[in-house]
Amino acid sequence: MIQDARIIAGFTGAGISTESGIPDFRSPGSPWMSNKPIPFDLFRQSAEARREAWRRKFVMDDIYSGARPSRGHLGFAALVASGCMPAVITQNIDGLHQESGLAEEQVIELHGNGTYAHCLACGRRHELDWVRRHFEASGDPPECVACGGILKSATISFGQAMPEGPMRRAQKLAASCDLFLVAGSSLVVYPAAAFPAFAKENGAQLVIVNREPTPLDEAADLVIHAEIGSVFSVFF
């Protein structure tokens, strides 16, 4: 099926990164439950909320600071390198697809990227090393060095609008592919989870690789309930 595909759209969720040591949101005892992201509106309105958001951010960063690309990430990188997969659409914010060898333009990040910060006013990028030094030295939420605006991790928070550019790119890829390959997503977080169904409606075959069942299993052409790394290791 994959060998015969002309254009493959990759789609990944948290399950591809749990094998790298990054916890997902729903696992029992997940540290995300005690370090939940602050809603976007509250983050903008309250300096105290921003202070707490950065504290939680750095706690989580320390937990998975040693994470490296999994066999699943490497499998997707190999598919992209083969020329049959133009890009990987991901719900993840960890940057591990880029670490696996993919260029920035080969990763469509629907929920942003947690490996750097940006200014909500002017958009300037700020590296986390600088942000953390400032935060730990002063105890205050950092401000943009260019305009004094609010700095935020470059992720999409609850209540924040989805990024228009990545959403358009994901829709275009889902509409043009003849195989949509999902790995490690529960397919319950919308609007991101709508892309596999959209691809299927546009004539693509749908393959889902996930440890647990998903709401789209019945619609899929192939479902594999297994560890992602063991499945994708055949590609590299």
Rank of each mutant, 00 (worst) to 15 (best):
Y190W: 13
G148W: 00
D217T: 03
I63G: 05
G184M: 04
S233N: 12
S176D: 13
D221F: 00
M162Y: 13
D221V: 00
A14R: 07
H73L: 03
R55W: 04
L216Q: 15
M60W: 04
E201H: 13
A14L: 09
L187E: 05
V231M: 02
V145Y: 10
S30I: 05
E143P: 10
G72W: 02
S34Q: 15
F43D: 02
R124P: 08
A9F: 10
S186L: 13
N92G: 07
P28I: 04
M60Y: 01
H111W: 09
G114F: 02
A14P: 00
P215T: 11
V223T: 12
R71N: 13
D217E: 03
T214L: 07
Q106E: 15
P213S: 01
H118N: 14
R56D: 01
L206Q: 06
S230F: 07
G229V: 10
G123L: 08
R168I: 13
Q171V: 10
E218V: 14
S17K: 01
S186H: 11
R68M: 13
A121Y: 03
Y190G: 10
I2C: 00
A67N: 06
V88H: 06
R169S: 13
M162A: 15
S70M: 07
S230R: 14
T115Q: 14
S82T: 06
D129C: 07
Q171M: 11
G114H: 02
G148K: 03
F232H: 05
G203K: 00
T12V: 06
D94R: 02
G83N: 05
L173I: 02
D129G: 15
H97T: 01
R124W: 12
I16W: 02
A67E: 06
A174W: 07
Q3N: 15
S17T: 04
R55P: 03
A49H: 04
D221C: 00
I208F: 01
F180P: 06
T214V: 07
R50Q: 09
G21M: 05
P163H: 07
A193K: 09
N92R: 08
N35Y: 12
C122M: 03
R125A: 13
I22N: 12
G10T: 00
Q3T: 12
